[in-house]
Design a protein around this nucleic acid. Structure first.
Length: 126
DNA sequence: TCAGTGACTCCCC
DNA sequence: CGGGGAGCCACTG
């Protein structure tokens, strides 16, 4: 654990920046970190270090706006944490990504060396 | 070094 | 809406 991969570091940094009440999907985090198809890795990293490193792990969801943590027994905890931040789930247990998705500032994108074009491609609510 | 793994995603039924 | 299957790829032992 606590490896030193560049991708891992970027993932941890990006997640640590997601504001209260906002979310990103695993795939979006992976893309912002430079490896668009490494969504599974993001989940793995959070599973290992999310709580240990005091990250806002609850703010990362699957591509449908649902919680993937039910399969590891963390679903209810994640839902409660999000609701405590003012996030409302729809009857199906999903949340509206267009409404809650975090849009990083231009400065942040520049820091991560992500073009606005790339960001526009993966973020719904630009 | 390398096969195995999986908090993912997309597609199809 | 639900389930199955095939890709994916950084990380791990």
């Amino acid at each position: 654990m606590g490896g030193e991969g560049a991708f891992r570091k970027k993932v941890l940094r990006i997640i640590s920046r997601i504001p209260r009440g906002k979310v990103l999907t695993y795939g979006q985090v992976a893309t912002l970190a430079g490896v668009p198809r490494a969504a599974r890795i993001v989940g793995g990293i959070l599973y290992q270090e999310g709580i240990e490193k005091k990250l806002p792990w609850q703010r990362v969801l699957n591509a449908r706006g649902g919680l993937s943590t039910y399969r590891v027994g963390m679903g209810e905890a994640q839902r409660r944490l999000l609701e405590a931040e003012g996030v409302a789930f729809n009857p199906g247990g999903f949340l509206d990504l267009k409404k809650y998705q975090w849009i990083p500032s231009e400065g942040e994108l520049k820091k991560w060396k992500i073009s606005e074009e790339t960001a526009y491609g993966i973020l719904e609510n630009w």
